[in-house]
C-alpha cells in the first residue's frame, strides 16, 4: 500500500483480527474518522453498512473461521471524498463478476443473503474488487460526502 495518494488530506489504517466482534468495531472506527466531514445520518449509515459488509466478508468468506488479519485503510481526499479499502490475505474469489451479482452467495451454513456487494455498490459511489485465488481480496470503495445536499 502506498503511503500517500494524490489529494490525500488525512488517513487512518487499521489492522484487526478476523473475528466477528470486529465488524462493529471496524464500522464504528471508520464512522469516527468520517465524522470530520460532518456527514448526515444517511451518509454515515451508508458508510458503516459498506464497511460492515466488506469486513464481514473477510471474516466469513476469506478466512472462514481461520485466524487472519483484516486491513482497513480510510483516506480523506480533497473534494470531501472518503476512500476505504478493505483487504485480506484469504482464499480469494474465483469469479468476481459473479460474486458481485445480487443474491449470489457461497455461504450455506449461515443465512447469507448474498447482498453484501450489492449494498457496497449502492451505498457508496464507487466499488472496485480485485481478487486472486489463494492470495486474497481487495475491496476499494469511495464516497463523496455532502453530494446529496449540494445546491440546497
Amino acid at each position: 500500500m502506498k503511503t500517500r495518494i494524490k489529494g490525500e488530506i488525512n488517513r487512518m489504517e487499521l489492522r484487526l483480527p478476523a473475528i466477528s466482534v470486529n465488524e462493529g468495531i471496524a464500522r464504528a472506527a471508520v464512522a469516527g474518522f468520517c465524522a470530520q466531514l460532518a456527514p448526515d445520518a444517511t451518509e454515515l449509515s451508508d458508510i458503516k453498512c459498506a464497511v460492515s459488509e466488506a469486513v464481514t466478508n473477510c471474516i466469513v468468506h476469506a478466512y472462514a473461521g481461520r485466524p487472519g488479519v483484516c486491513y482497513i485503510t480510510v483516506v480523506l481526499l480533497e473534494g470531501r471524498v472518503v476512500r476505504i479499502s478493505v483487504r485480506d490475505n484469504g482464499c480469494g474469489i474465483a469469479d468476481v463478476r459473479r460474486a458481485r451479482e445480487p443474491l449470489f452467495t457461497t455461504g450455506d451454513t449461515d443465512e447469507r443473503s448474498g447482498m453484501g456487494f450489492t449494498v457496497m455498490e449502492n451505498f457508496m459511489d464507487r466499488l472496485t474488487v480485485r481478487s486472486r485465488l489463494g492470495k486474497g481480496t481487495l475491496v476499494l470503495m469511495s464516497k463523496e460526502i455532502g453530494r446529496s445536499r449540494q445546491g440546497e
Binding site: K48, E111, R112, S113, G114, G116, V119
Partner: peptide, 13 residues
C-alpha cells in the same frame, strides 16, 4: 440503530 445484509438473511430466515 444499524442493520446490514446479515439482517436481511436473519429476517428472511
Amino acid at each position: 440503530e444499524f442493520m446490514d445484509s446479515a439482517g436481511l438473511g436473519l429476517l428472511l430466515g
